[in-house]
Design a binder for these strands. Sequence first.
DNA 1: TGTATTTTATTTGTCGACAGGTGGGCGGCG
DNA 2: CGCCGCCCACCTGTCGACAAATAAAATACA
Lengths: 237, 237
Amino acid sequence: MGKEPSEREVSQVKRGGGVARVYETLRNEIIDLKLAPGSPIDETELSARFAMSRTPIREALVRLAAEGMITTLTNRTTIVSNIDFVQLGAFFDALTLMYRVTARLAAQHYDESDLAAIRSHQASFTKAVESGDVLGMIATNRDFHVAIAVAGRNKYYTDLFRRVLDDGRRILRLYYHSYDDNLPRQYVIEHEHMISAMIARDVQESDRLAIEHADQIVRQIRSYISADSRSASSIAL
Amino acid sequence: MGKEPSEREVSQVKRGGGVARVYETLRNEIIDLKLAPGSPIDETELSARFAMSRTPIREALVRLAAEGMITTLTNRTTIVSNIDFVQLGAFFDALTLMYRVTARLAAQHYDESDLAAIRSHQASFTKAVESGDVLGMIATNRDFHVAIAVAGRNKYYTDLFRRVLDDGRRILRLYYHSYDDNLPRQYVIEHEHMISAMIARDVQESDRLAIEHADQIVRQIRSYISADSRSASSIAL
DNA sequence: TGTATTTTATTTGTCGACAGGTGGGCGGCG
DNA sequence: CGCCGCCCACCTGTCGACAAATAAAATACA
C-alpha cells in the first residue's frame, strides 16, 4: 500500500541496475566517439560521476573489456580501444558476409513481428535522414540491420553482426563530417528493396541486394578514408 | 638480486593473475561439462576454493557471463548456461560457414609461422586420436581449427569461430561416449587434406574440403542426438 | 489438513579501506 | 648540462564487512 514503484528512476533505481546504466552509458559514449580512442579511463573519476562505489564501475568496465570496447593495461590504466585500421579489410569482409547471411536467413525465417520491428527501424532511419541527423542515421541504420539479423534466428550471426556494426558506427562517426547528402537517401531506397525481397521470401534477390548494399557502404568508407587521411593518421596512434 | 622470478607459480602469482586463473579454470570446467549445464555457481564457495576474496571471483564471473558461458539470475544465483538444442540448426549453420570462410582466408593469407602452429596442433590431435583420449581429441581438434582461423587474419571470424567451436566442445562432450572409432581417423586424414590445399593456396579446394569436413561433423552430431535422446532430454531442462 | 503470511537464513550487490605496483618528479653523479 | 637512479604520489587490485533481496522454513488461520 505505501509503496510507490515509480518516481525514482532517476538516480539509483534498484540493486544491480546501476551497473547496467554505467555499462550502456560508457558503451554509447565510446561508440559515438564522445570518448576518444586511446583516452584513459579513471575508475575513481567514474565513481564520482555516477555516484557509486568503484566496485560496480569495475564490473561495467570488465564487461566492456570482454567485448573489446576498452583495453586494460594491467596495474596501470584502462583506455578506450583504438580503431584498428590495419584490420579494415577484415572489417569490410565480415560486414559484407554478415549482410548477406542475415538477409538470406531473414527471407527464410522472418515472421510478422520481425517485419513490424524492421519497418519501425526503417521509419526511424528515414526520419533521421530527412532531418539530417547524422548521429541518428548511424544509430538507426545499425538497428535496422540488427533487426534483420534477429529475424534470421541465428544468435551467432546476430551477435557477430552487432559487433561488426558497432565497430562500423565508430568508423562512420569518425568520418561523418564528409557525409554526402545523396547517399543516405540511396540507403533508404535500398533498405526498402531489401524489405520487399524479404517479404517475397526471395533468398537470391535478398543476397544480391545485400552484396550491393555492402559494396555501397564499403566504397563510401573507403572514399572517406582516402579523402581524409589526415584525421585518420592522427587517430591511428 | 634477492628476487627469484620463478618457483611461485602455484598459488598467487601476481596482482591480477588470480582473476585469469579463475576465469580459465571455470571456463574449461564448463566446456568439459565438469560443471553441468544449469548447475548453480556459488560465489562464496568459489572464494573458498581459490583462496581469494569474492571480488576477483566476481570479476571472472562477469567475464564468463559476457561471453554467454554462464547466466546470472539477478539477485539470485548464477547458473551454468544450458546447451540450447533449439538453436542447434543455427549452430550447424554457423559452424559450416566458419569452416569455409576461415579455410578460404587461410589459403590466401597464411605464412610459415601459421603453418607451423597448424601442424603442431594437428600432431597433437593425431596423438590424441591414436591414444584414444577423447577429451584430448575434442580440445586439440578445436585448437587446430582456431589456428586455421588465426592464419586467416580476420579477428571477427576468429572470435566467432572460437565461440562456435567451444559450444561444439560442450555438445561433443555430451555425446562422446558413443564415439565411433573410425571417425576420428577419418578426421585426421581430412585435416591433412585441408593443410595440403592450404599450402597449395587453392581456395576452391579448401572451401570444398571445409564443406565436406563440416558435413561430416554435423552428420556425426545429428546421429548421436537421434540415437541418444534420453540423455539429451534429461539435460535440456 | 491445506493455504496464506510472517520470519529467518542464505546469497548477492555495494561499500570503504588497504596494499601493491607503476610512472613521474627530484636529486645526484658523470 | 645531461643522464641515471631513487623516492613519492596516484591508481589499480584485493579484501572484509554490511545491507538488500529472495527463497525456504515456520507459524497461524480457515
